[in-house]
Design a protein around this nucleic acid. Structure first.
Lengths: 220, 220
DNA sequence: GCCGCTTCGTGTCTTAGTGACGCTTTAGAG
DNA sequence: CTCTAAAGCGTCACTAAGACACGAAGCGGC
């Protein structure tokens, strides 16, 4: 019926691959915007909460759960979906490392794409990704969510690379370490057996610390 | 029909009265939650955007337009409305000074209530107000939206009072002035004829400055 | 086992920002 | 003229931030 409003959720899923920040996109099979890239999403089912719907969409695409996810913004322009009035509650998800993904039933293809070279996208999804990137950068500057895109144990250099990749700028090694250690990371006993160079100490995120601690700017 | 989701918008409207931060509440006439306080809201009409709906609700309650308003969060728990599945896209509005308000057709009463002494509230609206207050404080610390709750021309002491009232703490006069002036306020020629004490210089917000400038923390 | 390569890990100094703090000035009322 | 009430203003000590370079630890090849 045309007098009601459809509710969907779309999830911007970020991951790091090498020195690139990537977002998971799916290529639509159906109209509208057939054969165009979009971020994964779906209708919210009446008996599931918004959060549950977003978790479900994420799981369907990546088979991961229990990762960082937060509500981003709700987009609700009247003409954003040509099929009829639809609002979308968007979420931002950070997954650790690059994951293998398979195209779903309604998609031609599923791929990780660099946020620095985004393809044309259907609906208002290009806006959504841009907004999500802005938010991610903002969060990285002020809080400590960087961990969430790394494996459970990581080196400080890996972490610094992650920050540099997301923020799109080089950071000073010593200042980075000083600042990140003044916050809430615990060090590990394990050494690392890297093929190249001197082994690095591994760190892991402290469970007892809240990742969202509001600190002074970490990287102004 | 029970298989669809209703979309509403609710607006948390803050204003200062004296040394109190207040929120506009309406007392419902109808079930559910009849005779309980809620924040003003209404259904989103299919041919209006979310933002337009929020502006409309605000106007219906306060007869003001063109004030600071921003999207807050979208609440969508399954059981938040006993009538059926409803999500609400909430907005935060700041209005200058206390405004007279009249109860609308579906409300018993409309009143400004102190955020420090909130009554029991229907739906999940107590949560929403709490969340809005948290967001407002956060914004005040980092940006300069304090102006938006004052008349167009104001003294620095008034502005400081506003910050103190919202943040719930005293601030140092000289440090406050130093910081606020290092940002984006323009001074005025007018003196003020206060009954009490030495007249103060009036200031007004600079149109050419963006109120949302991200500064270093103003008041940590 | 020595050398060379690669990456890890560390400290200091300079500059800028933050927080604490009290007294003089101005106008109105009596 | 005096009193009262609020406005307006500057300094100093401390902390945070940014710039900057080199020795240490493993590994692989010879």
């Amino acid at each position: 019926m045309d007098s009601s409003i459809s509710v969907t959720t779309d999830v911007v899923i970020f991951a790091l691959r090498g020195d690139d920040l990537q977002v998971l996109l799916v290529k639509r099979k159906l109209q509208p915007f057939a054969h165009q890239w979009t971020i994964p999403g779906g209708h919210v089912i009446p008996h599931e909460s918004l959060e549950d719907a977003a978790v479900r969409v994420l799981f369907e695409k990546t088979s991961v759960r229990d990762i960082h996810m937060e509500q981003l913004y709700t987009f609700g322009d009247v003409k954003r979906d040509p099929r009829g009035r639809t609002i979308t509650v968007t979420y931002l998800a950070l997954v650790p490392g690059p994951l293998a993904v398979e195209p779903g039933p309604d998609t031609d293809d599923t791929e990780w794409k660099s946020v620095y070279k985004l393809p044309e996208m259907g609906f208002d999804h290009a806006n959504i990704v841009t907004y999500a990137l802005k938010r991610l950068r903002y969060k990285l500057e002020y809080s400590a969510v960087g961990f969430r895109m790394l494996p459970p144990e990581f080196t400080l250099t890996q972490l610094q690379r992650a920050y540099e990749t997301v923020l799109g700028q080089k950071l000073d090694k010593r200042n980075f370490r000083r600042r990140i250690l003044q916050a809430i990371v615990i060090e590990q006993v394990n050494k690392r057996t890297s093929g190249e160079g001197r082994p690095a100490m591994l760190y892991r995120f402290r469970d007892d610390a809240v990742s969202e601690v509001k600190t002074r700017r970490l990287f102004p």
